[in-house]
Nucleic acid binder design. Structure first.
Length: 422
RNA sequence: GUGAACGUAGCUCAGCUGGUUAGAGCGCAGGAUUGUGGCUCCUGAGAUCGCGGGUUCAAAUCCCGUCGUUCACCCCA
């Protein structure tokens, strides 16, 4: 019987895991500088936490969730995104009673039952931030500048920021009415998918890749023209704020994000380093979500950053995360009887924070040296009968090939000096 | 959920239109150097040819199914 990871999941091995850790570390660091506090929400939630906010009609809820029943028959779902759980927690823990805004960040695995593809798997990591309790456009600006700065910090500079305003419920109501009328008149010319979208979620027609549909949609009413004065003013302030921080952006009034909870500002950052799945983060404002979840009316804005995709960008760009750390000392024994002695010495070295290792595969002397070479160690300690008879060990410096005897009792201090000097 | 390509040693691949014991390079282990790595040379280990079924005298090769991978669509990080 051979086991393997379930479809769309994988083992993250060294050195890729180092990229992930690096991104987590840098994100945490930066988020804290911006005044965010970490929150860890459960891996699974009551299914309604997601269905209500993301939208029953959305792709994620309708076909991409890992939903299961527990032994008491409760419907639970592995989290497909981070915002809904944070909102649930905000309300459950009555954070609205604290001085606002509340600034939270998370680093977590997400799960979506999707067809795997480059840059998309069924389990993936996201880091994200949420600012709850303010409608200030500068909060939107902060979130966006935060991700831009994070990418800069990680060495990713070739990014493109797309931004749009989805308006509030008032302006969207009028717009949707006119858009649906526009689409219905042309429904015969539109593709099957688009006709389905008209009923399901008309805004989704703008995602259509069909050239014919694209052409028809070029003349469609745009949300931009329906935006109420309040939303318009808000959006302009966001753009102004971005400009003042020298963040370049591209307006894209076709940008519609996949969660129904978004209002006003929505944005997405893409990179030319990836394939078809080129968005490395996405976010926006969700001013009704908290209220809809039974909390007090609270405005909020947030972003989610794809860690795996970001790691891929770094790898494609040959950006190194942490400097490579090799073992410092490798212990070699002339014969197997000395292995136990080596193990004692090894324990002492490690006790003194000197990273070290030895062979456990009964390799020949030559094999042990090859091993040491492969591990790129600087020093090899050789335990041999000749040396030990005089209470000594041999120390070989691998780069130069130079070898000398040192007192067994002195080994630790000698090695400590050697390594600290470097 | 839709479409396409692919699945042969640890890795990268060869194996033409079915025909004996399935190969190479790299890697791994040992040796040449009876106590010394990186170069070279020699030797060796390692493959139920993804899995199941079918066609055939004969299947890694053809057919069907299945699982998986990859890429794209949908959608999204």
């Amino acid at each position: 019987m051979k086991f393997q990871t379930p479809r769309g999941t994988r083992d993250i091995l060294y050195p890729e895991v180092e990229y992930k850790n690096y991104i987590f570390e840098k994100s945490r660091e930066l988020f804290k500088i911006y005044g965010f506090k970490e929150i860890v929400t459960p891996t699974f939630e009551q299914t309604e936490v997601f269905t209500k906010g993301i939208g029953e009609a959305s792709d994620i809820v309708s076909k991409e969730m890992y939903t299961f029943k527990d032994r008491k028959g409760r419907s639970l779902t592995l989290k497909p995104e981070g915002t809904a759980p944070v909102v649930r927690s905000f309300i459950q823990n009555k954070m609205y009673g604290k001085p606002l805004p509340i600034k939270l960040f998370y680093c977590s695995q997400m799960f979506r039952y999707e067809r795997p593809q480059a840059g998309r798997s069924r389990e993936f990591s996201q880091v994200g931030v949420e600012i709850l309790g303010t409608i200030d456009p500068l909060a939107d600006v902060e979130v966006i500048s935060l991700v831009i700065n994070l990418y800069k910090e990680l060495g990713i500079t070739q990014t493109k920021l797309f931004i749009n305003s989805m308006g509030c419920r008032n302006c969207r109501r009028d717009y949707l009415k006119d858009l649906v009328n526009f689409l219905k008149i042309r429904s015969k010319k539109l593709c099957k998918d688009c006709n389905f979208r008209i009923k399901k979620n008309p805004l989704r027609v703008f995602d259509c890749k069909n050239e014919n549909c694209k052409q028809i949609l070029a003349d469609s009413p745009t949300l931009k023209d329906y935006i109420c004065s309040e939303c318009k003013e808000h959006f302009e302030k966001v753009l102004k704020g971005l400009k003042s921080l020298n963040i370049s952006y591209q307006l894209n009034d076709r940008l519609v994000r996949g969660f129904d909870y978004y209002t006003k500002t929505v944005f997405e950052v893409t990179t030319p380093e990836l394939g078809a799945q080129d968005a490395i983060c996405g976010g926006g404002r969700y001013d009704y979500l908290i209220e809809d979840y039974g909390g007090p009316p609270t405005f909020a804005v947030g972003v989610a950053i794809g860690v795996d995709r970001t790691a891929n960008v770094m790898m494609n760009m040959s950006i190194k995360p942490f400097p490579e750390k090799n073992i410092e000392v490798f212990i070699i024994t002339i014969n197997d009887e000395l292995k136990e002695k080596a193990s004692i010495l090894l324990d002492k070295l490690r006790g003194n924070k000197i990273s070290s290792d030895m062979d456990y595969c009964n390799r020949s002397l030559k094999g042990q040296f090859r091993m040491a070479d492969r591990l790129k160690v600087k020093y090899v300690l050789i335990l041999g009968e000749k040396e030990l008879a005089d209470n000594k060990v041999s120390l070989k410096e691998m780069e130069t090939g130079q070898q000398l005897h040192i007192n067994y009792d002195n080994v630790i201090n000698y090695m400590k000096d050697k390594i600290n000097v470097r």
